[in-house]
């Protein structure tokens, strides 16, 4: 039963990779990796129970954090072309249009 769930999540992750490869704009790719990461977190939680070792959830917590941090870094790279400057002043204005 849980194994069926794990197989379903695997399919969803495969679809995310298709979006990652096909994504026309860079933000589609960042979205694909972010969603891929969140689905991985769910997969870990589900697999922990399917394998009978529920104490694997520590790994799931780390996934959620790393996924968030790498999504912000990827987005900064595409948007501001630099990792160093503060994001708090993310500009909504329309200068610097780029892919």
């Amino acid at each position: 039963m849980l194994a069926g769930g794990v197989a379903g999540l695997l399919v969803a992750m495969g679809l995310m990779i298709v979006r990652l490869l096909r994504g026309p704009t860079a933000y589609d790719r960042v979205l694909a990796v972010n969603s891929f990461g969140t689905k991985t977190v769910l997969m870990i939680a589900l697999m922990g129970f399917a394998v009978g070792r529920p104490d694997f959830l520590d790994v799931a917590i780390v996934y959620a954090l790393i996924n968030f941090i790498s999504t912000i870094a990827l987005m900064k790279v595409f948007r501001l072309r630099s990792l160093a400057e503060p994001l708090a002043r993310l500009s909504i204005s329309r200068e610097a249009p780029d892919g």
């Binding site: 501001l80 630099s82 400057e85 503060p86 994001l87 708090a88 002043r89 993310l90 500009s91 909504i92 204005s93 200068e95 610097a96």
Partner: peptide, 8 residues
């Protein structure tokens, strides 16, 4: 090098 930041 911060862009002309409006309300971030």
């Amino acid at each position: 090098v911060s862009l002309r930041a409006s309300a971030g």
